[in-house]
Design a protein around this nucleic acid. Sequence first.
DNA 1: GACTTACGTCGAAGCGCTTCGACGGGGGAA
DNA 2: TTCCCCCGTCGAAGCGCTTCGACGTAAGTC
Lengths: 336, 336
Amino acid sequence: MVKITDVARHAGVSPSTVSYALSGKRPISEETRQRVEASIRELGYRPHAGARALASSRSNVLALVVPLRAGIHVPVVMQFAVSVVTTARRHDHDVLLLTQEEGEDGLRRVADTALVDAFVVMDVQLDDPRLPLLRSLERPSVMIGFPADAEGLTCIDLDFKAAGEACVEHLARLGHRVVALVGSPPEVYVRQTAFAQRVVQGFTAAADRGRLASSVHPCEATPAAAREVAEQLLREQPALTGVVVHNEAILEPLVDAFEQLGLRVPADLSITAICPDELAENLRVPITSVALPSAEVGERAVELLMRKLDSKTVPEATLLPPRMTERASTAPRNTP
Amino acid sequence: MVKITDVARHAGVSPSTVSYALSGKRPISEETRQRVEASIRELGYRPHAGARALASSRSNVLALVVPLRAGIHVPVVMQFAVSVVTTARRHDHDVLLLTQEEGEDGLRRVADTALVDAFVVMDVQLDDPRLPLLRSLERPSVMIGFPADAEGLTCIDLDFKAAGEACVEHLARLGHRVVALVGSPPEVYVRQTAFAQRVVQGFTAAADRGRLASSVHPCEATPAAAREVAEQLLREQPALTGVVVHNEAILEPLVDAFEQLGLRVPADLSITAICPDELAENLRVPITSVALPSAEVGERAVELLMRKLDSKTVPEATLLPPRMTERASTAPRNTP
DNA sequence: GACTTACGTCGAAGCGCTTCGACGGGGGAA
DNA sequence: TTCCCCCGTCGAAGCGCTTCGACGTAAGTC
């Protein structure tokens, strides 16, 4: 293994100079830096992560906390994860994957052992048991999602309330007067995951404001459940012409179900969704949707964390405004 | 921060004794161990990961290498990942998540910096560019999947060839004489991912052996593609009564498509799949399937790695035998 | 022209842990 | 009884890096 003293000898400088050349924490003459860098390349030097962590009390590792709960949409989680890793690498950090079998102890463990410098926390619930711990830890963290009480925490997410509103307003603009929200699986609401509830709030508020008739329907992530909801909607709200879907897994089956029940999309029924663009684009009927910007959220989360690690101040709440893309699933109401 | 010297003082022993009590690398009297453990608990001692890594040249971190290529089924990948993490934790290791934006350099980097002790490598291709690197690295690795030349590597996977055979043999036993394989998206074959090809080999071999008429059809992971394949099959093989599906994403749409084309499952058409049990169980028509044992593969992979880290010998190849579960999608051929 | 200031570099002191060699004491073998 | 060996413990030497204080030297300042 080639170490910093080898590089120093090769470049004819002291180890500390090599260190400073690498970190930039003290001025080093251009010429010396060149020489050091050449030696590093030539010898193939790579600083030992453990030694560096010990000496600097920085591991340059972030923990990504992913509780894999029921009812979540796995591909979306994975997209977050990938963008977190990618962004972390851009900032010279690596990412440790923490699932939650260990529960909060896992967080405490990696913090206490100084294995990680900071946390990115996913799938935050309104009343999340991890919050007190994260507040007490001396390591910074960023939550993807909003708990009920975000005091003292840094949170980022799509503005789901605004997203719900945007969907309704889009439908209202097209003349629809009776709308329904087909939401996430019931367990997601029971668990009080904030984002699901926020969509409902936005949806309801906008519908009320626009004097639309509206209803809300949680839905299991199975095609059978989607069919049932479709049937139920037609039965209970025969005048329904606008649907907002906030449930990736059943978007397609739901559209199918409506069509099988004799409704053409968008001629008879306009559908909007809150989901990843990739999903909305690739359906048989491309769906007008508010994008779930996983990549952007992951990236911004890491960037917030980096600022916190640099002891810079960051906003406590970051709500990304919804971005709606019109596709083939919405049309003006068919007034017969 | 409480450190080992604090524990030592509190317990009235030397730091090295604390270390040995913790690692078990030298005999420590029961009484001393008790005392040390009590002190550790009382003080809340947690060894510093970096210091430990530096002194022992073991980081107790594994790298999980996840190239997120097109055409893979993300939930399956996630299941692997979770079981890798869980098993690693059981062996007192953590898991660093490496996507492949960095390419092979990322592997080299975390190896050279001693950030990780070993690698779990997913989505191995027949001619994988990572193989030479992994062979040359002094750190052990386990591949999930088989490359063309596995010489000197440790690989584990479901025996996909046997799985393909099992599906065909099951259909043959039920009297089916004309069968088709609906496979993974074309890009998966082009990339020469081993498991997809092995299924084809097993399928074809078993069909030939049983003198069944057979055909193979790669299929994009979209419902539209599934419908097309279904129509094509009925057109080109009107006598078809058995289908093997090796493509999680389109399993359900494919079944739907067949039924919409007037074929009842299993009365007119028997369907078997190679997919996670969870998926097969929860379809409208539960599908007879060979399980994709993600959890077991992940677990076994980590255990192999642990043995290698202990310098024990391990088998180069581990092929998990297919396990088939009969469900509602297969029946004896309807001989009119 | 004397005096500060900043630059560029060095040496040494750790960071917190593991591990190696050493050592006293007790028990079994001879 | 003597010798040897093993058990249980200690002290000290690193592991490879960062960082702090110090020190010349060059460049402003008045």
